[in-house]
Design a protein around this nucleic acid. Sequence first.
DNA 1: CAGTGGTCTAGACCACTAC
DNA 2: TAGTGGTCTAGACCACTGT
Lengths: 239, 239
Amino acid sequence: MFKYEQISNEIRKRIQEGFYSLDEPIPDELSLSQEFSCSRMTMKKALDILVMEGLLYRKRGHGTFIVKSAAHNGLVNVTSEENLGLTNLLKGKKITSQIIKFEVRFPSKEVAAQLSIDLTTPVYHLIRLRIVENEPYVIEKTYMPTPLIRGLNEDVLHASIYNHITHGLGLTIAGCHRKIRASKPTELDQTYLHCAPDDPILEVEQVGFLNNGVPFEYSFSRHRYDKFVFTTVNIRRNK
Amino acid sequence: MFKYEQISNEIRKRIQEGFYSLDEPIPDELSLSQEFSCSRMTMKKALDILVMEGLLYRKRGHGTFIVKSAAHNGLVNVTSEENLGLTNLLKGKKITSQIIKFEVRFPSKEVAAQLSIDLTTPVYHLIRLRIVENEPYVIEKTYMPTPLIRGLNEDVLHASIYNHITHGLGLTIAGCHRKIRASKPTELDQTYLHCAPDDPILEVEQVGFLNNGVPFEYSFSRHRYDKFVFTTVNIRRNK
DNA sequence: CAGTGGTCTAGACCACTAC
DNA sequence: TAGTGGTCTAGACCACTGT
Protein backbone atom coordinates (compact mmCIF):
# COMPACT_ATOMS: atom_id res chain seq x y z
CA MET A 1 0.00 0.00 0.00
CA PHE A 2 1.64 3.19 -1.18
CA LYS A 3 1.54 6.53 0.49
CA TYR A 4 -0.56 8.15 -2.25
CA GLU A 5 -3.09 5.33 -1.96
CA GLN A 6 -3.39 5.72 1.78
CA ILE A 7 -3.89 9.43 1.36
CA SER A 8 -6.49 9.14 -1.39
CA ASN A 9 -8.36 6.53 0.65
CA GLU A 10 -8.40 8.86 3.63
CA ILE A 11 -9.66 11.79 1.58
CA ARG A 12 -12.27 9.64 -0.15
CA LYS A 13 -13.52 8.65 3.29
CA ARG A 14 -13.66 12.29 4.34
CA ILE A 15 -15.67 13.22 1.26
CA GLN A 16 -18.15 10.46 1.82
CA GLU A 17 -18.53 11.35 5.47
CA GLY A 18 -19.12 15.02 4.70
CA PHE A 19 -15.94 16.15 6.41
CA TYR A 20 -15.41 18.86 3.80
CA SER A 21 -17.88 21.55 2.86
CA LEU A 22 -19.40 21.27 -0.59
CA ASP A 23 -19.38 25.02 -1.14
CA GLU A 24 -15.72 25.63 -0.53
CA PRO A 25 -12.61 24.15 -2.02
CA ILE A 26 -10.91 21.48 0.02
CA PRO A 27 -7.57 22.61 1.48
CA ASP A 28 -4.93 23.45 -1.08
CA GLU A 29 -2.30 20.96 -2.14
CA LEU A 30 0.45 22.51 -0.07
CA SER A 31 -1.57 22.43 3.15
CA LEU A 32 -2.69 18.87 2.50
CA SER A 33 0.84 17.73 1.75
CA GLN A 34 1.92 19.24 5.07
CA GLU A 35 -0.96 17.57 6.91
CA PHE A 36 -0.07 14.19 5.40
CA SER A 37 3.67 14.77 5.62
CA CYS A 38 4.34 14.21 1.96
CA SER A 39 5.59 16.12 -1.04
CA ARG A 40 3.25 18.11 -3.22
CA MET A 41 3.79 15.65 -6.08
CA THR A 42 2.61 12.78 -3.93
CA MET A 43 -0.38 14.80 -2.75
CA LYS A 44 -1.20 15.57 -6.36
CA LYS A 45 -1.06 11.90 -7.27
CA ALA A 46 -3.43 11.05 -4.43
CA LEU A 47 -5.88 13.71 -5.60
CA ASP A 48 -5.46 12.56 -9.22
CA ILE A 49 -7.04 9.26 -8.26
CA LEU A 50 -10.10 10.97 -6.80
CA VAL A 51 -10.37 13.23 -9.84
CA MET A 52 -10.31 10.18 -12.09
CA GLU A 53 -13.00 8.61 -9.96
CA GLY A 54 -15.16 11.65 -10.50
CA LEU A 55 -15.19 12.67 -6.83
CA LEU A 56 -13.12 15.84 -7.18
CA TYR A 57 -12.50 18.46 -9.81
CA ARG A 58 -9.82 21.11 -9.97
CA LYS A 59 -10.02 24.70 -11.06
CA ARG A 60 -6.69 26.22 -11.91
CA GLY A 61 -5.96 29.26 -9.86
CA HIS A 62 -8.94 28.56 -7.67
CA GLY A 63 -8.82 25.29 -5.83
CA THR A 64 -10.00 21.70 -5.65
CA PHE A 65 -13.70 21.00 -5.16
CA ILE A 66 -16.00 18.09 -4.46
CA VAL A 67 -18.24 17.02 -7.35
CA LYS A 68 -21.72 17.57 -6.00
CA SER A 69 -23.41 14.84 -7.98
CA ALA A 70 -20.88 12.41 -6.53
CA ALA A 71 -21.53 13.43 -2.95
CA HIS A 72 -25.27 13.81 -2.92
CA ASN A 73 -26.21 10.28 -3.82
CA GLY A 74 -25.01 7.25 -1.99
CA LEU A 75 -23.62 5.58 -5.09
CA VAL A 76 -20.20 7.20 -5.28
CA ASN A 77 -18.93 5.46 -8.34
CA VAL A 78 -15.74 4.32 -6.69
CA THR A 79 -13.33 2.47 -8.93
CA SER A 80 -15.71 1.97 -11.80
CA GLU A 81 -14.52 0.22 -14.91
CA GLU A 82 -13.89 -3.15 -13.40
CA ASN A 83 -13.63 -6.30 -15.43
CA LEU A 84 -13.40 -9.15 -13.04
CA GLY A 85 -16.00 -11.45 -14.44
CA LEU A 86 -19.51 -12.08 -13.33
CA THR A 87 -18.55 -14.21 -10.37
CA ASN A 88 -16.73 -11.36 -8.71
CA LEU A 89 -19.23 -8.73 -9.79
CA LEU A 90 -22.16 -10.40 -8.13
CA LYS A 91 -20.50 -11.58 -4.98
CA GLY A 92 -22.87 -13.05 -2.50
CA LYS A 93 -25.35 -14.24 -5.10
CA LYS A 94 -25.61 -17.83 -6.17
CA ILE A 95 -24.11 -18.09 -9.63
CA THR A 96 -24.07 -21.27 -11.63
CA SER A 97 -23.02 -22.04 -15.17
CA GLN A 98 -24.46 -24.34 -17.76
CA ILE A 99 -21.91 -25.44 -20.35
CA ILE A 100 -23.43 -25.31 -23.80
CA LYS A 101 -20.25 -25.86 -25.77
CA PHE A 102 -16.70 -26.77 -24.83
CA GLU A 103 -14.44 -27.55 -27.77
CA VAL A 104 -10.95 -27.00 -29.08
CA ARG A 105 -10.68 -25.67 -32.63
CA PHE A 106 -8.49 -23.78 -35.01
CA PRO A 107 -9.46 -20.13 -34.93
CA SER A 108 -11.21 -18.25 -37.71
CA LYS A 109 -9.32 -15.38 -39.28
CA GLU A 110 -11.24 -12.90 -37.16
CA VAL A 111 -10.60 -14.75 -33.90
CA ALA A 112 -6.93 -15.23 -34.71
CA ALA A 113 -6.54 -11.54 -35.47
CA GLN A 114 -8.22 -10.47 -32.25
CA LEU A 115 -6.11 -12.85 -30.18
CA SER A 116 -2.89 -12.03 -32.05
CA ILE A 117 -2.26 -15.68 -32.84
CA ASP A 118 -1.84 -17.53 -36.11
CA LEU A 119 -4.39 -19.83 -37.69
CA THR A 120 -2.64 -22.98 -36.46
CA THR A 121 -2.80 -22.15 -32.75
CA PRO A 122 -5.76 -24.03 -31.28
CA VAL A 123 -8.29 -22.08 -29.27
CA TYR A 124 -10.89 -23.08 -26.76
CA HIS A 125 -14.33 -22.34 -28.09
CA LEU A 126 -16.82 -22.33 -25.32
CA ILE A 127 -20.31 -21.16 -24.68
CA ARG A 128 -21.65 -20.82 -21.18
CA LEU A 129 -25.01 -19.80 -19.81
CA ARG A 130 -24.56 -17.89 -16.57
CA ILE A 131 -27.40 -18.29 -14.10
CA VAL A 132 -27.90 -16.01 -11.11
CA GLU A 133 -30.21 -17.17 -8.35
CA ASN A 134 -31.77 -19.67 -10.75
CA GLU A 135 -32.50 -17.06 -13.40
CA PRO A 136 -30.62 -17.00 -16.71
CA TYR A 137 -28.69 -13.73 -17.08
CA VAL A 138 -26.17 -13.94 -19.86
CA ILE A 139 -24.72 -16.21 -22.54
CA GLU A 140 -20.98 -15.94 -23.03
CA LYS A 141 -19.23 -17.14 -26.16
CA THR A 142 -15.51 -17.15 -25.50
CA TYR A 143 -12.34 -17.91 -27.46
CA MET A 144 -9.05 -18.40 -25.63
CA PRO A 145 -5.66 -19.62 -26.87
CA THR A 146 -5.04 -23.10 -25.50
CA PRO A 147 -1.28 -22.59 -24.93
CA LEU A 148 -2.00 -19.61 -22.73
CA ILE A 149 -5.01 -20.71 -20.73
CA ARG A 150 -4.03 -24.14 -19.54
CA GLY A 151 -5.93 -26.53 -17.36
CA LEU A 152 -9.42 -25.55 -18.42
CA ASN A 153 -11.93 -28.20 -17.42
CA GLU A 154 -15.55 -28.55 -16.51
CA ASP A 155 -14.95 -27.74 -12.88
CA VAL A 156 -13.42 -24.43 -13.84
CA LEU A 157 -16.15 -23.66 -16.34
CA HIS A 158 -18.79 -24.28 -13.70
CA ALA A 159 -16.99 -21.88 -11.37
CA SER A 160 -15.13 -18.81 -12.57
CA ILE A 161 -12.67 -18.69 -15.48
CA TYR A 162 -11.33 -15.36 -14.26
CA ASN A 163 -10.44 -16.78 -10.89
CA HIS A 164 -8.74 -19.70 -12.61
CA ILE A 165 -6.65 -17.33 -14.72
CA THR A 166 -5.67 -15.06 -11.87
CA HIS A 167 -5.36 -17.51 -8.98
CA GLY A 168 -4.90 -20.87 -10.70
CA LEU A 169 -2.52 -19.80 -13.44
CA GLY A 170 -1.03 -16.81 -11.64
CA LEU A 171 -1.63 -14.49 -14.59
CA THR A 172 -2.55 -10.85 -14.18
CA ILE A 173 -5.38 -9.32 -16.15
CA ALA A 174 -4.51 -5.82 -17.29
CA GLY A 175 -7.67 -4.66 -19.00
CA CYS A 176 -9.92 -5.06 -21.99
CA HIS A 177 -11.30 -3.37 -25.04
CA ARG A 178 -15.07 -3.50 -25.30
CA LYS A 179 -17.72 -2.81 -27.85
CA ILE A 180 -21.25 -2.49 -26.55
CA ARG A 181 -24.25 -2.75 -28.81
CA ALA A 182 -27.89 -3.76 -28.91
CA SER A 183 -28.92 -6.80 -30.90
CA LYS A 184 -31.88 -8.97 -31.77
CA PRO A 185 -32.11 -12.28 -29.94
CA THR A 186 -30.92 -15.36 -31.78
CA GLU A 187 -32.52 -18.76 -31.43
CA LEU A 188 -29.82 -19.61 -28.91
CA ASP A 189 -30.63 -16.52 -26.85
CA GLN A 190 -34.33 -17.27 -26.84
CA THR A 191 -33.77 -20.87 -25.83
CA TYR A 192 -31.34 -20.28 -23.01
CA LEU A 193 -32.11 -16.79 -21.77
CA HIS A 194 -35.85 -17.48 -21.92
CA CYS A 195 -36.44 -14.27 -23.79
CA ALA A 196 -39.20 -13.37 -26.22
CA PRO A 197 -38.48 -12.83 -29.94
CA ASP A 198 -38.82 -9.08 -29.45
CA ASP A 199 -36.70 -8.85 -26.30
CA PRO A 200 -33.53 -6.98 -27.14
CA ILE A 201 -30.09 -8.25 -26.16
CA LEU A 202 -27.24 -6.16 -24.81
CA GLU A 203 -24.13 -7.54 -26.45
CA VAL A 204 -20.58 -6.87 -25.29
CA GLU A 205 -17.72 -7.84 -27.57
CA GLN A 206 -14.52 -7.92 -25.60
CA VAL A 207 -10.81 -8.54 -26.03
CA GLY A 208 -9.17 -9.08 -22.67
CA PHE A 209 -5.43 -8.85 -22.28
CA LEU A 210 -2.89 -9.65 -19.64
CA ASN A 211 -0.29 -7.77 -17.80
CA ASN A 212 2.16 -8.49 -20.59
CA GLY A 213 -0.08 -7.16 -23.33
CA VAL A 214 -1.02 -10.59 -24.68
CA PRO A 215 -4.71 -10.98 -25.51
CA PHE A 216 -6.10 -13.95 -23.60
CA GLU A 217 -9.77 -13.91 -24.51
CA TYR A 218 -12.07 -12.78 -27.25
CA SER A 219 -15.66 -12.99 -26.18
CA PHE A 220 -19.22 -12.06 -26.95
CA SER A 221 -21.50 -11.75 -23.95
CA ARG A 222 -25.18 -11.51 -24.65
CA HIS A 223 -27.09 -10.09 -21.70
CA ARG A 224 -30.80 -10.06 -20.90
CA TYR A 225 -31.83 -6.45 -21.45
CA ASP A 226 -33.75 -6.32 -18.18
CA LYS A 227 -30.85 -7.50 -16.04
CA PHE A 228 -27.88 -5.42 -17.09
CA VAL A 229 -26.74 -1.86 -17.45
CA PHE A 230 -23.19 -0.78 -18.21
CA THR A 231 -21.89 2.22 -16.36
CA THR A 232 -18.93 4.31 -17.46
CA VAL A 233 -17.33 7.45 -16.14
CA ASN A 234 -15.65 9.59 -18.74
CA ILE A 235 -13.34 12.34 -17.64
CA ARG A 236 -11.69 14.54 -20.20
CA ARG A 237 -7.97 14.63 -20.01
CA ASN A 238 -6.46 17.93 -18.90
CA LYS A 239 -6.50 20.22 -21.82
CA MET B 1 1.33 22.16 -25.64
CA PHE B 2 3.30 20.67 -22.77
CA LYS B 3 6.54 18.80 -23.00
CA TYR B 4 5.01 15.49 -21.92
CA GLU B 5 2.35 15.85 -24.60
CA GLN B 6 4.89 16.51 -27.32
CA ILE B 7 6.87 13.49 -26.21
CA SER B 8 3.88 11.15 -26.02
CA ASN B 9 2.74 12.32 -29.46
CA GLU B 10 6.17 11.60 -30.89
CA ILE B 11 6.29 8.14 -29.34
CA ARG B 12 2.74 7.37 -30.45
CA LYS B 13 3.79 8.26 -33.98
CA ARG B 14 6.80 6.00 -33.70
CA ILE B 15 4.67 3.10 -32.53
CA GLN B 16 2.21 3.54 -35.35
CA GLU B 17 5.00 3.78 -37.92
CA GLY B 18 6.69 0.62 -36.66
CA PHE B 19 9.78 2.47 -35.47
CA TYR B 20 10.09 0.17 -32.46
CA SER B 21 10.28 -3.61 -32.59
CA LEU B 22 7.29 -5.46 -31.18
CA ASP B 23 9.42 -8.20 -29.66
CA GLU B 24 11.66 -6.01 -27.58
CA PRO B 25 10.96 -3.41 -24.97
CA ILE B 26 11.18 0.17 -26.12
CA PRO B 27 14.18 2.05 -24.68
CA ASP B 28 14.14 2.41 -20.91
CA GLU B 29 12.86 5.54 -19.23
CA LEU B 30 16.30 6.92 -18.46
CA SER B 31 17.50 6.62 -22.06
CA LEU B 32 14.30 8.13 -23.40
CA SER B 33 14.45 11.02 -20.94
CA GLN B 34 17.99 11.69 -22.14
CA GLU B 35 16.93 11.51 -25.78
CA PHE B 36 14.11 13.96 -25.17
CA SER B 37 16.09 16.09 -22.75
CA CYS B 38 13.64 15.82 -19.90
CA SER B 39 13.48 14.42 -16.40
CA ARG B 40 12.46 10.85 -15.78
CA MET B 41 9.22 12.03 -14.14
CA THR B 42 8.22 13.87 -17.30
CA MET B 43 9.15 10.86 -19.43
CA LYS B 44 7.02 8.70 -17.17
CA LYS B 45 4.08 11.04 -17.55
CA ALA B 46 4.41 10.92 -21.34
CA LEU B 47 4.44 7.13 -21.27
CA ASP B 48 1.53 7.11 -18.79
CA ILE B 49 -0.66 8.62 -21.48
CA LEU B 50 0.20 5.88 -23.94
CA VAL B 51 -0.37 3.22 -21.30
CA MET B 52 -3.80 4.70 -20.59
CA GLU B 53 -4.54 4.64 -24.30
CA GLY B 54 -3.72 0.95 -24.39
CA LEU B 55 -0.72 1.35 -26.68
CA LEU B 56 1.96 0.42 -24.16
CA TYR B 57 2.24 -1.77 -21.11
CA ARG B 58 4.96 -1.90 -18.50
CA LYS B 59 6.55 -4.83 -16.76
CA ARG B 60 8.31 -3.94 -13.58
CA GLY B 61 11.92 -4.90 -13.63
CA HIS B 62 11.69 -5.76 -17.29
CA GLY B 63 10.76 -2.86 -19.52
CA THR B 64 8.03 -1.11 -21.47
CA PHE B 65 6.42 -2.91 -24.40
CA ILE B 66 4.04 -2.21 -27.24
CA VAL B 67 0.59 -3.81 -26.96
CA LYS B 68 0.46 -6.09 -29.98
CA SER B 69 -3.27 -5.89 -30.51
CA ALA B 70 -2.94 -2.12 -30.65
CA ALA B 71 -0.23 -2.15 -33.27
CA HIS B 72 -1.44 -4.83 -35.64
CA ASN B 73 -4.73 -3.25 -36.63
CA GLY B 74 -5.06 0.20 -38.04
CA LEU B 75 -7.58 1.32 -35.45
CA VAL B 76 -5.26 2.35 -32.63
CA ASN B 77 -7.88 3.47 -30.21
CA VAL B 78 -6.27 6.85 -29.61
CA THR B 79 -7.97 9.08 -27.07
CA SER B 80 -11.05 6.95 -26.76
CA GLU B 81 -13.79 7.98 -24.40
CA GLU B 82 -14.78 11.18 -26.04
CA ASN B 83 -18.05 12.90 -25.38
CA LEU B 84 -18.25 15.78 -27.75
CA GLY B 85 -21.69 15.26 -29.18
CA LEU B 86 -22.75 13.74 -32.42
CA THR B 87 -21.82 16.74 -34.54
CA ASN B 88 -18.17 16.44 -33.65
CA LEU B 89 -18.16 12.64 -33.69
CA LEU B 90 -19.31 12.39 -37.27
CA LYS B 91 -17.40 15.24 -38.76
CA GLY B 92 -17.68 15.49 -42.51
CA LYS B 93 -21.12 13.90 -42.62
CA LYS B 94 -24.24 15.91 -43.13
CA ILE B 95 -26.06 16.03 -39.82
CA THR B 96 -29.42 17.65 -39.37
CA SER B 97 -31.78 17.81 -36.43
CA GLN B 98 -35.53 17.68 -36.23
CA ILE B 99 -36.90 19.34 -33.13
CA ILE B 100 -39.66 17.24 -31.65
CA LYS B 101 -40.04 19.10 -28.39
CA PHE B 102 -38.60 22.34 -27.04
CA GLU B 103 -40.13 23.48 -23.77
CA VAL B 104 -39.25 24.99 -20.43
CA ARG B 105 -40.59 23.19 -17.37
CA PHE B 106 -40.02 22.59 -13.71
CA PRO B 107 -37.98 19.44 -13.26
CA SER B 108 -39.26 16.18 -11.88
CA LYS B 109 -37.66 14.93 -8.68
CA GLU B 110 -35.45 12.58 -10.64
CA VAL B 111 -34.27 15.25 -13.07
CA ALA B 112 -33.65 17.75 -10.28
CA ALA B 113 -31.60 15.22 -8.38
CA GLN B 114 -29.47 14.33 -11.40
CA LEU B 115 -28.84 17.98 -12.21
CA SER B 116 -28.24 18.95 -8.56
CA ILE B 117 -30.89 21.66 -8.72
CA ASP B 118 -34.04 22.25 -6.72
CA LEU B 119 -37.55 21.71 -7.96
CA THR B 120 -38.12 25.40 -8.67
CA THR B 121 -35.25 25.85 -11.12
CA PRO B 122 -36.68 25.64 -14.62
CA VAL B 123 -35.13 23.25 -17.07
CA TYR B 124 -35.17 22.99 -20.81
CA HIS B 125 -36.92 19.84 -21.87
CA LEU B 126 -36.10 19.03 -25.42
CA ILE B 127 -36.32 16.11 -27.76
CA ARG B 128 -34.35 16.05 -30.97
CA LEU B 129 -34.13 13.57 -33.79
CA ARG B 130 -30.61 13.51 -35.19
CA ILE B 131 -30.41 12.67 -38.87
CA VAL B 132 -27.17 11.66 -40.58
CA GLU B 133 -27.05 11.80 -44.37
CA ASN B 134 -30.85 11.78 -44.44
CA GLU B 135 -31.15 8.69 -42.28
CA PRO B 136 -32.51 8.89 -38.71
CA TYR B 137 -29.86 7.77 -36.22
CA VAL B 138 -30.81 8.72 -32.70
CA ILE B 139 -33.45 10.42 -30.59
CA GLU B 140 -32.10 12.54 -27.75
CA LYS B 141 -34.22 13.57 -24.79
CA THR B 142 -32.33 16.22 -22.85
CA TYR B 143 -32.84 18.23 -19.66
CA MET B 144 -30.67 21.27 -18.97
CA PRO B 145 -30.94 23.96 -16.29
CA THR B 146 -32.05 27.21 -17.91
CA PRO B 147 -29.86 29.49 -15.74
CA LEU B 148 -26.78 27.60 -16.83
CA ILE B 149 -27.37 26.99 -20.51
CA ARG B 150 -28.47 30.36 -21.78
CA GLY B 151 -29.32 31.43 -25.28
CA LEU B 152 -30.79 28.16 -26.47
CA ASN B 153 -32.84 28.67 -29.60
CA GLU B 154 -33.94 26.80 -32.67
CA ASP B 155 -30.81 27.72 -34.58
CA VAL B 156 -28.66 26.13 -31.90
CA LEU B 157 -30.89 23.07 -31.69
CA HIS B 158 -30.62 22.57 -35.41
CA ALA B 159 -26.84 22.77 -35.18
CA SER B 160 -24.89 21.50 -32.17
CA ILE B 161 -25.72 22.15 -28.53
CA TYR B 162 -22.22 21.06 -27.51
CA ASN B 163 -20.61 23.65 -29.71
CA HIS B 164 -22.96 26.27 -28.30
CA ILE B 165 -21.95 25.36 -24.76
CA THR B 166 -18.23 25.28 -25.42
CA HIS B 167 -17.83 28.05 -27.98
CA GLY B 168 -20.94 30.17 -27.53
CA LEU B 169 -21.07 30.16 -23.73
CA GLY B 170 -17.38 29.59 -23.12
CA LEU B 171 -18.03 26.71 -20.73
CA THR B 172 -15.78 23.70 -20.49
CA ILE B 173 -17.18 20.19 -20.47
CA ALA B 174 -15.30 17.99 -18.05
CA GLY B 175 -16.91 14.60 -18.52
CA CYS B 176 -19.98 12.50 -18.00
CA HIS B 177 -21.41 9.51 -16.25
CA ARG B 178 -23.16 7.06 -18.54
CA LYS B 179 -25.41 4.10 -18.25
CA ILE B 180 -25.75 1.97 -21.36
CA ARG B 181 -28.57 -0.50 -21.80
CA ALA B 182 -30.72 -2.22 -24.39
CA SER B 183 -34.40 -1.37 -24.59
CA LYS B 184 -37.53 -2.07 -26.56
CA PRO B 185 -38.61 0.63 -28.99
CA THR B 186 -41.34 2.99 -27.87
CA GLU B 187 -43.96 4.43 -30.19
CA LEU B 188 -41.80 7.54 -30.47
CA ASP B 189 -38.78 5.49 -31.49
CA GLN B 190 -40.71 3.61 -34.12
CA THR B 191 -42.18 6.77 -35.57
CA TYR B 192 -39.02 8.80 -35.79
CA LEU B 193 -36.24 6.24 -36.08
CA HIS B 194 -38.25 4.22 -38.61
CA CYS B 195 -37.60 1.06 -36.71
CA ALA B 196 -39.66 -2.10 -36.51
CA PRO B 197 -41.44 -3.12 -33.30
CA ASP B 198 -38.83 -5.81 -32.73
CA ASP B 199 -35.80 -3.63 -33.49
CA PRO B 200 -33.88 -3.11 -30.26
CA ILE B 201 -32.74 0.31 -29.11
CA LEU B 202 -29.37 1.13 -27.56
CA GLU B 203 -30.12 3.62 -24.82
CA VAL B 204 -27.53 5.82 -23.13
CA GLU B 205 -28.50 7.68 -19.99
CA GLN B 206 -26.01 10.41 -19.32
CA VAL B 207 -25.22 13.13 -16.82
CA GLY B 208 -22.75 15.59 -18.28
CA PHE B 209 -20.87 17.99 -16.06
CA LEU B 210 -18.69 21.00 -16.52
CA ASN B 211 -15.24 21.93 -15.56
CA ASN B 212 -16.56 23.25 -12.27
CA GLY B 213 -18.35 20.04 -11.37
CA VAL B 214 -21.82 21.39 -12.09
CA PRO B 215 -24.06 18.97 -14.00
CA PHE B 216 -25.30 20.70 -17.14
CA GLU B 217 -27.32 18.01 -18.85
CA TYR B 218 -29.27 14.90 -18.08
CA SER B 219 -30.14 13.02 -21.20
CA PHE B 220 -31.43 9.82 -22.68
CA SER B 221 -30.18 9.01 -26.16
CA ARG B 222 -31.94 6.22 -27.97
CA HIS B 223 -29.85 4.88 -30.85
CA ARG B 224 -30.78 2.69 -33.79
CA TYR B 225 -29.16 -0.64 -32.98
CA ASP B 226 -27.73 -1.00 -36.48
CA LYS B 227 -25.97 2.38 -36.44
CA PHE B 228 -24.12 2.54 -33.15
CA VAL B 229 -21.60 0.72 -31.08
CA PHE B 230 -19.97 2.03 -27.92
CA THR B 231 -16.31 1.37 -27.46
CA THR B 232 -14.50 1.49 -24.14
CA VAL B 233 -10.97 0.77 -23.09
CA ASN B 234 -10.57 -0.41 -19.53
CA ILE B 235 -7.13 -0.47 -18.01
CA ARG B 236 -6.68 -1.69 -14.48
CA ARG B 237 -5.04 0.77 -12.21
CA ASN B 238 -1.54 -0.14 -11.02
CA LYS B 239 -1.95 -2.56 -8.23
C1' DC C 1 24.34 -8.68 -9.60
C1' DA C 2 22.78 -5.03 -12.98
C1' DG C 3 18.81 -3.15 -15.10
C1' DT C 4 14.17 -2.00 -15.06
C1' DG C 5 9.96 0.53 -13.59
C1' DG C 6 7.45 2.51 -9.08
C1' DT C 7 7.54 5.78 -5.66
C1' DC C 8 8.88 9.93 -3.33
C1' DT C 9 11.20 14.30 -2.33
C1' DA C 10 12.06 19.44 -2.03
C1' DG C 11 12.29 22.51 -4.48
C1' DA C 12 11.41 25.70 -9.02
C1' DC C 13 8.81 28.40 -12.41
C1' DC C 14 4.55 29.17 -15.00
C1' DA C 15 -0.63 30.03 -15.94
C1' DC C 16 -4.71 31.17 -14.30
C1' DT C 17 -8.05 33.37 -10.97
C1' DA C 18 -9.79 36.61 -7.80
C1' DC C 19 -9.20 40.75 -5.34
C1' DT D 1 -0.71 41.01 -5.77
C1' DA D 2 -1.49 36.71 -3.51
C1' DG D 3 -3.01 32.17 -3.94
C1' DT D 4 -4.08 28.33 -6.55
C1' DG D 5 -3.14 24.23 -9.53
C1' DG D 6 0.06 22.56 -13.68
C1' DT D 7 4.45 21.42 -15.07
C1' DC D 8 9.21 20.16 -14.56
C1' DT D 9 13.64 18.98 -12.46
C1' DA D 10 17.60 16.11 -10.54
C1' DG D 11 18.11 13.32 -7.69
C1' DA D 12 16.96 9.25 -4.13
C1' DC D 13 15.56 4.68 -2.63
C1' DC D 14 12.72 0.55 -3.29
C1' DA D 15 10.66 -3.73 -5.70
C1' DC D 16 10.93 -6.73 -9.10
C1' DT D 17 13.18 -9.36 -12.97
C1' DG D 18 16.61 -11.69 -15.34
C1' DT D 19 21.42 -13.65 -15.49
